[in-house]
């Protein structure tokens, strides 16, 4: 197999010769700038103009008084966060769950896409594809309510089957040990199918000649998967993984909240639930913004570390 990836970001394009002055480069690339401009303006207007909102983490913001009339309080909100007796528990829960999400939920659509890619009956493939993308549209409320119906120890279908096989039942819904598996399972169920779309799009770039060449080389089924299919989506995987790190501490509030109960809260408290209750229901805008900033800083550190590792592994990282 030839080396599959060309590192485009560092390859020098013929016309971009170093000697050209900046002015000339600007002039040469004027059309590119034109293409860039609308999007860039959008980012500045809709993403950067409201960015002053991040500063309310350092104020005691009251919507009625407005930004300027609210008092500056420095790092008070951060101190409060770190001094919260539950902080380390919340941090730990969030990190563990995020870690599981990264190693179980993140690869699920990739595996599913690879499996689909091996299906040769186009009709079958299309039906499966269409079906597995449906759960994405089911709200968490429905997912939670059906989870109860299937998993409850009082006659839930899953426990009935398990009981008939093993003679015992499992408290999936109430025991802290099962909480994370349940959350991960629900996420895979809901999002894996939809997530395949992007990988299937990447796979559409693989030509049949590549497979033919691999066959000529005597590559078997699995080697072809390893050497042709996987490399074709490797770029996307790496980029998605790096970007995912930026939001590493994000968990869907709604899902977690709906699955939390008095018996499993010890493992279910995560930042997004904390933010919800301190920010939305208690009106503590400044405090929840501070928590958001803290999460963001963690995100930046993780994104940069992952990028560093990826670069060491000779992966294209785009930036």
């Amino acid at each position: 197999m030839p080396k599959v990836d060309v590192d485009h970001s560092t390859s020098i394009e013929p016309i971009s010769v170093r000697k050209v002055s900046k002015w000339k480069m600007l002039k040469r690339d004027k059309w590119l700038f034109l293409l860039l401009l609308p999007g860039l303006i959008w980012f500045l207007v809709f993403k950067y103009v409201p960015m002053w909102g991040a500063l309310i983490a350092f104020k005691d913001y009251s919507p009625y008084l407005g930004f300027w009339a609210s008092d500056w309080v420095g790092f008070t909100h951060f101190e409060r966060l770190f001094q919260n007796p539950d902080f380390y528990r919340i941090l730990k829960n969030t990190l563990i769950l995020a870690f599981y999400e990264t190693i179980f939920v993140f690869p699920a659509p990739i595996i599913l896409a690879l499996m689909l890619n091996e299906i040769r009956f186009t009709k079958y493939k299309r039906i499966i594809q269409t079906v597995i993308y449906i759960p994405n549209f089911m709200s968490w409320v429905i997912v939670a309510s059906l989870s109860y119906v299937f998993l409850t120890t009082s006659g839930g279908a899953v426990n009935v089957i398990i009981e008939s096989l093993t003679g015992q039942t499992f408290n999936f819904l109430s025991s802290p040990e099962w909480f994370r598996s349940m959350i991960i399972g629900q996420q895979i169920w809901k999002d894996a199918g939809f997530g395949t779309i992007i990988f299937l799009a990447a796979l559409s770039g693989v030509s049949s000649e590549q497979y033919e060449a691999a066959i000529v080389d005597g590559a078997g089924r699995f080697r072809r998967m390893w050497h042709v299919t996987l490399p074709a989506i490797r770029n996307v995987i790496v980029i998605l993984l790096i970007l995912r790190m930026g939001n590493f501490l994000d968990q869907g509030f709604q899902q977690i909240y709906l699955m939390t109960n008095s018996l499993n809260r010890s493992v279910a408290d995560v930042f997004d639930v904390y933010i919800y209750f301190s920010g939305i229901t208690q009106g503590a805008f400044s405090h929840s913004t501070a928590v958001g900033l803290f999460k963001g800083v963690v995100g930046i550190i993780l994104i940069l570390s992952t990028r560093y590792i990826a670069k060491r592994l000779n992966q294209e990282t785009l930036f």
Partner: peptide, 23 residues
């Protein structure tokens, strides 16, 4: 309470349930 009400309520509500089910 305005600041930590939810957290405080959870502690006791959870303890009550855990007591009832014998945990």
């Amino acid at each position: 309470y305005t600041e930590r009400g939810q957290q405080l309520d959870n502690i006791i509500d959870d303890a009550r349930i855990q007591y009832i089910v014998g945990q």
